[in-house]
Design a protein around this nucleic acid. Structure first.
Lengths: 214, 214, 214, 214
DNA sequence: TATGAATGAGTTTTCATTCAT
DNA sequence: AATGAATGAAAACTCATTCAT
C-alpha cells in the first residue's frame, strides 16, 4: 500500500474510506457496517482507517455531511441564478433537486435515521462539534441565499430548509414503515392507488411550500 | 411475586413491563435500555420479561404503538365531534393535540428514530407484522374519520396523517441536531430569536395543513 | 388432566413421559430435547414432569435403561432356550438380536453417546446409583445365563456382553462420523463397496465372538 | 503479549491454545471447558482465541484430531517396518500402541464421547468438513499401510482400524459406566477379580483381531 | 504511515427447576 | 397431583479500538 505522504494523498485516502463506507451502507441492511468491513472495502487495514477517523461513527457522520452539502450548495444555482422566476417556481426547482437527490442516493435518508440515535452517540465531542458546525454552516449559507432570493425575513430561509429536510426524512422513514405490509399485499390506503415515494415526497413538499409561501 | 394467573393479570403485567421500558427510555440517553434494566425497573426477573415478549425490541415496538395509538384515536373526538368547525379549525385542533402529545411524551419521537434501524431489525417476523398491522389499522381508521369529517377523497386523510407524522418526526430529529450547538452558544439562525420546538412544530404543521387544504 | 392417584396410574404416567422423551429424541438432532418439549409431547405441564423425575437427565437415563434391558433379558430365550445349538450358533443368535434391536431403535445408540458426558453429569447421586444398579443387575443376570449356557468361567459372560455392547456403540459412533463425508461423495474406503451399518456391525460382532470363543 | 506475526508464530499460538484446551479438559469433569477458561489457560484474551478458531467446539475437534493422528501415523513404523513378523505379531504391536496411547492420554476417549453429540453440533460446516477430511485422510493412509503389510484386500485395513477404534471407545465408555459402582463397593462381576481398563482393552482387542485375522 | 494481532467489555437469551395456586 | 408463571445463572461471541512491529 502506498503511503499517503502529502496532504493531497491524505485527502484522497480519506475520501476513499468515505466512499467505501457509503457504498457498503447502501448495500447493507440498514445497520452500520463494521469497521473491518469498511477497511476491507477501502482496501486498507483496520488500523489505517483509525488514522483518518477517530471512531467508526465519525466516518458515517462524514458520509452524511458529504451527502447533504451538495444539495445545500445547489441553492446557489437554483435560487440566485434565476431571478426572473416566481417564488413558487424557484421553490419548485429546489423541491425537484431535493427529490432527485434523495431518490438518487437513498442511503442518505437511511443513514440519517441513524443520526442522533446511533451515530452521534459514538463520536468524540470534537468530531461531533466539527460535524455540526459544518452542517450548520452549509445550512446558514443556503438559508441566506433563499432569504435573499425570495426576499424573506432573515432566518426564514433556514427555517424552510429545515422543514423541507424534516418532511423529507420523516416521510421517508414513514414510507419505509409500510413497505413490508404492501409487500405482503396489505394496503395502507385501500382506496387510493399507491404512488411511488418520489411522487409522494414531491407532493408533500409542494403542499408544504405552498402553505409556507402563502 | 404475585403470579399473573388469569388473562387480566397477564395483561397488567405486560403493561407494567411496557411502562417500565418507556420510563427508562425517557430517562436514558437515547439508546435502548438493556433487557436487564427493563426487568429490574419492572420489578421482575430477566427471564420473566421474555415470557411476555420474544425479544427486547418487541417491547419497544409496543411502547411506540401504545404511544401513538391514542393520538390516532383522538381523531374521533377532534374531527367527528366538531362538525360545526371549519376544516382549518378542525385541522388546528388536531395539530394542537399532536404538538401536545409530542411535547408531553418526547420519548415517543426519540424512540421513533430507532424504529426502522434498530428496533425492527431485532424483532421476530411475526411480532413485526403484528406491530405493523396494528399501526396500520389505527392509521386507516383515523384517516377514514378525517376523510369523512373534512369531506376529502378517500385515502387523503391517511395521507395527511402520514405527512403530519413525517413532518413531526423529521422536525424533531432535525431540531435535536442543533440543540448541542445552541447549548454551546452557537446560533443556528443568528438573526432570529430561537423559538421552542413546540412552537416550531406548531408553525410547521400549520403551514403544511394550510398548503394541503388550500 | 386426570390425576394419577394409585400406583398403577403413576406408573403409566411415568411410562408416557419416557415414551414421549424417546420419540422426541429419536426425531431430534442428537441433543437432548428441553424439559418443556418433553412435557408438551407427553401432554403434561412442565411441573408435572418434575413430579416423576428429579432432573431432565434422569428421564433420559431411564429411556436408555428401558431400551437396553429387554435386549439383556432376551438372553434368557436365546441362550438357555437352545441347549442343542453350538456355542457359536447361540452367539450368532444373540448377535442377530443385538443388531436387530439397534437397527430398530437407533436412538438408543445416539442417546448412549450422551451417557457419561451429558446425562450422568446432571443426575442426582441417588438417581444415578439407581440407574447403574439396575443396569448392572440386568447385565449380571444376562452374563450368568451366558456363562451357564456356554459353560464359561464365571464372569466371562458379562465380559462378552460388555465387549459386544462396546463394539456396538463404538462402531455406531464411528460409522456416524463418516456419513456426512459419504453424503458429500467422499469415500472413506475407496476400493470397497460401502456396506450398511447393520451388516458392518454384524460382521464386526461375528469377528469378535469368533475370536473370543476360539 | 508477543504478537504472532508470521505464519510460524501463528501455528505455535494455535498449538498453545489446543494444548491448553487439552490439559483443561483432562483435568475437568468431562464437560467442555468454557471459552474463557481455555483462553485464560493459554494466557490469552477471549477474543484472541476466536481469531484462531471459529467456535469453541472447533478447538476441541482439533484436540481430537491432533490426538489420534499420531496413532494412525504410527502404523507406518509398526506395520511396514517389520516385515519379518507374523500378521498376528504385527497386530499385537499395533494393539499395544493403541492401548498405550489411550492409557497415556485418557482425555482422548473422554473427548471422543462428546464428538458427534456435542462437538460436531457446534462447528461451522467448513470446519466440520475440514476436520472429517483430515481424519479420513489419516485413516485411509493407515488402512492402506495395513492392507499392504498384512496382504489384505484393499479397504480391509481401514475396516480393522475402524473396528479397533470402535471397540476401544466403546469399551472405554462402558468401563467408565461402572467405575462409580466399584467405587461404592458394588461389584460388576462378582466372581472375577477386577482387571484394569488397559488390560481389559488389550484382551478385547486381542480377541477381536484374532477373530478378524482367522 | 500502514498493518493486523490482541484485547476484553458488554448483553441477549435460554431453559432447568421451583413453587404459589 | 397438576399447573405454568417466575426465576436467574450461565456463556458464547462480536467488534471497536489499540498498539507493537
Amino acid at each position: 500500500m502506498l503511503r499517503a505522504v502529502d496532504q493531497e494523498d491524505r485527502q484522497a485516502r480519506r475520501k476513499s474510506i468515505l466512499e467505501a463506507a457509503r457504498v457498503l451502507f447502501r448495500q447493507g441492511d440498514g445497520r452500520l457496517p463494521t469497521a473491518a468491513e469498511v477497511a476491507a472495502a477501502a482496501g486498507l487495514a483496520k488500523g489505517t482507517v483509525y488514522i483518518y477517523f477517530k471512531t467508526k461513527e465519525e466516518i458515517f457522520a462524514n458520509v452524511l455531511l458529504e451527502g447533504w452539502l451538495p444539495l445545500l450548495a445547489s441553492t446557489e444555482t437554483i435560487f440566485l441564478g434565476s431571478k426572473k422566476k416566481s417564488r413558487l417556481q424557484q421553490a419548485q426547482a429546489f423541491i425537484k433537486a431535493t427529490v432527485d437527490r434523495v431518490v438518487d442516493e437513498p442511503e442518505l435518508l437511511r443513514l440519517d435515521a441513524l443520526g442522533a440515535s446511533v451515530i452521534e452517540k459514538n463520536m468524540t465531542p470534537e468530531a461531533l462539534l466539527d460535524y455540526k458546525l459544518r452542517f450548520n454552516k452549509g445550512l446558514l449559507d443556503a438559508g441566506d441565499r433563499i432569504d435573499s432570493a425570495l426576499s424573506l425575513a432573515p432566518g426564514r430561509g433556514v427555517q424552510l430548509l429545515l422543514r423541507t429536510y424534516a418532511l423529507t426524512r420523516g416521510l421517508w422513514q414513514t414510507a419505509g414503515n409500510f413497505e413490508q405490509l404492501e409487500g405482503a399485499g396489505i394496503a395502507v390506503v385501500s382506496t387510493r392507488p399507491k404512488i411511488p415515494f418520489s411522487q409522494d415526497l414531491h407532493e408533500a413538499l409542494d403542499e408544504y411550500w405552498r402553505g409556507a409561501l402563502a
